[in-house]
Design a protein around this nucleic acid. Structure first.
Lengths: 340, 340
DNA sequence: ACTGGCACTCGTTACAGTCGAGTGCCAGCG
DNA sequence: CGCTGGCACTCGACTGTAACGAGTGCCAGT
């Protein structure tokens, strides 16, 4: 049985009311608050159908209805009206991000802003290394057998790594190495560098080949193994907004999940298309987060995507508003990165 | 009226039992679990005195007693027996920290370890810049009017900052600047550098004085304004351990406080003596954390202190255990830093 | 196809009663 | 004088009952 127009209206009304009040919504209250043009009894019939189809459910017999994950999904996909940001919000975003000094600053401001605007937990991934290009590599001797490798990429990220050398290396050799790696790698996308790094080891003079090999392995480790992604988080306190029931009673699994970088990365999803993505409740692959929804999107200068950001909250969230905010913030951040 | 030995025993027993069971402890249960050698009635009399003196209180008339902040204070200062770490714990600490690659790694491992061992929220401050010495300064041209300033200090921290120059500067000038700042600053403690930086501006050739001045101001900002402290946190999920009553009902204020870097720094306290510090409940200056206790201490190679670390939990915490763990972890981290 | 009416369900709230842990006090004992 | 056993008392926790009411499903009527 397909749902006619009015049934969809009813579902939309239920979602909106439930999100607003956080209480199961009954047929009578519905017709009062939305002018559906029909009586409560009719709405009840519609509700029965919606329930049968799995879009809403009753917490208990004598209670109103609550949307299911499926219901939210339908709402997000087909029923929600786009909610434009208020000028005040736009201004807030602009002003808040404008003063940023460097990448760290941009990311921190962004994540706080997101948390504040959506009143939820915000997650921002630093521009991914894999999608950036090398701007400069610096080698700083720390002792005769130790180097500090500092890599600066075009998105502004700076990564450093201590390199333990197999044996002492004179300063001139370090200079040589510095010159060589820079010549070979600067301007290249990090995802393209592994073969180049490999080639370097082969080309280098035999006397410093061992050193170069060590350096190369550290480089590869830093560049390729994408676990070098970094993430900023804010707004955890927002989890305590609303009743505890939002998260089936305990914040514990959620707080735990939020401490695992790996999980957060999975949660933001692959930084693929710039399309905004909404994962509702059970759609999340992470068990601890089955009772939450995640709205995420990629960001970057222009059309290229260098990282992603998003927010996490109860399935009972204001989807239209959240979606609008996440999208807007991502766009501003992208622009900001372009200017750098 | 002063408290005799037995009353102190009673207080100790109350604290230990309450920490273990999380329930108000009555006179009968007390004599059963600890062999105090007296009857419940006697204990009741002692309790009455302890209550009058403000060390314990009754949640309600027909309930057992619960320690007050003052009671915990007395317990920590005079009653707790030192609880040596188990060999297993020692080994865990050693093994967990041994594999660390660089400073970031050390800090992250430490904070996780602390959270895990104490089952509370762990806080670790990165080695304070002010207490470190400059190892190397690097200037990387980003564009003709932009430099990336990278500072490496002896504790392994690496700070970077974007410098907007007043006008275009040729590469040779950058090299000159690099040489000059390094000559002047390497090996100096950061807290001693401000006058040196100032002097640099005066000494420099007039044609690049403007550039140097800009660079100097960024340097001073990075070095002096100690808001450049960094902090790592872990174990927030542990706040949900035990009943919600531990934190008078809501985690919200605590989670909020934990998101503010400034507050965390205040919480760790001045990195003064290496003495371990316990702040119990109301002793905390931060309003949001009046229902928590903080155990913190400084750490550093040898006797010098470069940062501090600690844990935060309910006032009802295992003080002896926590204190022992915090102290041990701090010592290990200090050693580790010394080896670098 | 929609509506009004009605019986029914069931969670919530209020109230009364019981239970028991724990207390304070006191008289008695060594 | 300090400790103890005994006892009356308090008060929260728990239980059972009853009334309430929001909300439902169903059905007959328009």
């Amino acid at each position: 049985m397909s749902l006619d127009e009015r049934k969809l209206d009813v579902l939309r009304a239920i979602v909106e009311d439930y999100v607003a009040t956080q209480e199961p919504v009954g047929s009578k209250a519905l017709v009062e608050r939305h002018n559906l043009g029909v009586s409560p009894a009719t709405v009840r019939n519609d509700m029965a159908v919606l329930e049968e189809e799995g879009y809403i459910r009753q917490p208990h017999t004598s209670a109103g209805r609550v949307p299911t994950d499926l219901g939210y999904r339908l709402f997000v996909d087909r029923l929600s009206r786009i909610k434009p940001l208020s000028p005040a919000e736009r201004r807030a975003i602009e002003r808040f991000l404008a003063g940023a000094l460097d990448l760290d600053d941009v990311v921190h401001r962004t994540v706080r802003l997101l948390a504040q605007l959506t009143r939820q937990v915000a997650v921002v991934q630093y521009p991914s290394l894999a999608r950036s290009s090398v701007r400069h590599l610096e080698l700083v001797p720390i002792s005769t057998t130790r180097l500090m490798l500092v890599m600066i990429v075009d998105t502004g990220r700076v990564e450093q790594r201590l390199v333990e050398l197999p044996g002492p290396v004179p300063d001139e050799a370090v200079s040589d190495l510095r010159r060589m790696v820079n010549e070979k790698l600067v301007g290249k996308r990090l995802s393209d560098t592994p073969p180049l790094v490999q080639a370097l080891v082969d080309e280098v003079a035999p006397d410093i080949r061992g050193t170069m090999a060590t350096l190369a392995s550290v480089l590869l480790e830093t560049l390729v193994e994408r676990h070098e992604e970094r993430i900023a988080l804010a707004g955890r306190a927002n989890l305590t907004r609303g009743s505890l029931l939002d998260f089936q009673g305990s914040l514990r699994p959620i707080l735990e999940a939020l401490e695992e970088e790996v999980i957060l990365l999975k949660l933001l999803g692959e930084v693929d298309a710039s399309t905004l993505r909404v994962r509702i409740g059970d759609e999340n692959e992470i068990d601890n987060l089955r009772s939450t929804s995640v709205v995420s999107t990629g960001y970057g200068p222009g059309v290229t995507i260098v990282g992603s950001l998003g927010v996490l909250g109860p399935t009972r969230m204001d989807y239209p508003g959240t979606i609008a905010t996440v999208r807007a913030v991502a766009r501003y951040v992208g622009e900001l990165l372009g200017n750098n």
